[in-house]
């Protein structure tokens, strides 16, 4: 049987020997390619999947009294994401405190994304319309904030926005205001800081689609009686939409879970998702709760990304 089995596929598939040989080569090539992936897979497993599994396990356990968890099953942390157990009657009530945190986080991330888009769009357009050999320099300049330590960057923004900070001093000197404006510890300060931090994430994908934009289409728009604004709305924006969406997603996701910038520039006055999670692992000593919130956020982000990817793929297939 063993002797015939090597011949069998030849008869079944009707493939000649050279074709079979080339298939074997393909398989070997595939194996080599998978080997190249191995280091990445290893790192993702150790640094990504393993901790994530621990977080998942913790989220279904009970909190220990002084941090950590008791390895006993409990769905409380997950239920808590939406409901609150009444202290006396034990019935489930909507967890309005969390709802407002979700809403605030979404709003802040949305504001951040809009701000980054408003700044990033003209910036990318500017870069994409420079001479090709100049573009990389401009892109590098945009990413400089990325090379600076996050805390230092945030501290610098605080120096600008403080009551006696640069901005207030200038406004006072110019006589535009009599008393310092409360700039720091406002929603504006937070979204300003977030937008500044994540601007490169908006600019990069936007630039990538604008660089591919055929500017002859812009001329065609002008030729067909479209004003500058109409060309922007009817020609440029539809054509760079993939970049807008990708940039917005890249900006929105880290912004909604941000901890450092929101706590520094927001002054910890208003709780956001990032600060809420940090609090559960810190003063609140409720690790399961922190785990559940973190995972819940991740799941929602993944679902949103999945829907977006499907839509984009469907559309690009249609083209």
């Amino acid at each position: 049987m063993a002797a015939t089995s090597s011949d069998a596929p030849v008869q079944e598939t009707g493939l000649s020997r050279p074709e079979l040989a080339s298939r074997a080569n393909d398989r070997a090539a595939m194996r080599r390619r998978l080997m190249l992936l191995a280091p990445a897979v290893l790192i993702i497993t150790i640094c990504g999947l393993a901790p994530l599994s621990i977080v998942l396990a913790y989220s279904w356990m009970q909190p220990a009294e002084y941090a950590g968890v008791i390895p006993q099953f409990s769905p409380d942390a997950w239920i808590n994401l939406a409901f609150e157990r009444d202290l006396f009657s034990d019935e489930l009530l909507p967890n309005f405190a969390y709802y407002s945190i979700y809403a605030r986080s979404i709003m802040m991330a949305g504001m951040t994304t809009l701000l980054a888009l408003a700044v990033g769009f003209p910036t990318s357009y500017f870069i994409a319309t420079r001479a090709p050999h100049r573009r990389n320099l401009w892109l590098f300049l945009i990413t400089i904030p990325f090379w600076t330590n996050l805390l230092i960057r945030t501290f610098a923004i605080m120096l600008i926005l403080r009551d006696e900070g640069v901005l207030n001093v200038i406004l006072l000197k110019l006589g535009i205001i009599d008393t310092p404006l409360q700039l720091l510890f406002t929603n504006w300060a937070v979204s300003y800081g977030l937008a500044y931090a994540y601007l490169p994430l908006m600019v990069m994908p936007l630039y990538a689609s604008m660089e591919k934009l055929d500017f002859r289409l812009v001329e065609a728009g002008y030729d067909l009686y479209a004003s500058r604004f109409q060309v922007l709305r009817r020609v440029i924006i539809p054509l760079v939409k993939p970049g807008i969406v990708a940039g917005s997603i890249l900006c929105f996701i880290p912004a909604i879970g941000d901890y450092v910038i929101t706590s520094q520039l927001g002054g910890g006055k208003r709780m956001m998702l990032g600060t809420l999670i940090a609090m559960q692992f810190g003063p609140a000593r409720n690790w399961p709760q922190g785990s559940a919130i973190a995972l819940g956020l991740m799941i929602i982000v993944l679902i949103a990304l999945f829907i977006y990817a499907k839509k984009v793929v469907a559309r690009s297939n249609m083209r």
């Binding site: 002859r216 728009g221 009686y225 479209a226 083209r319």
Partner: peptide, 26 residues
């Protein structure tokens, strides 16, 4: 004045009919 461009420069995000309607809409 309207132009028929050397590269045509048709709008790829629009259909044939939408391309033709573009100028009139503007």
């Amino acid at each position: 004045v309207n132009t028929v461009f050397q590269s045509y420069a048709l709008f790829p995000h629009l259909t044939v009919a939408q391309n033709i309607a573009f100028g009139l809409e503007m």
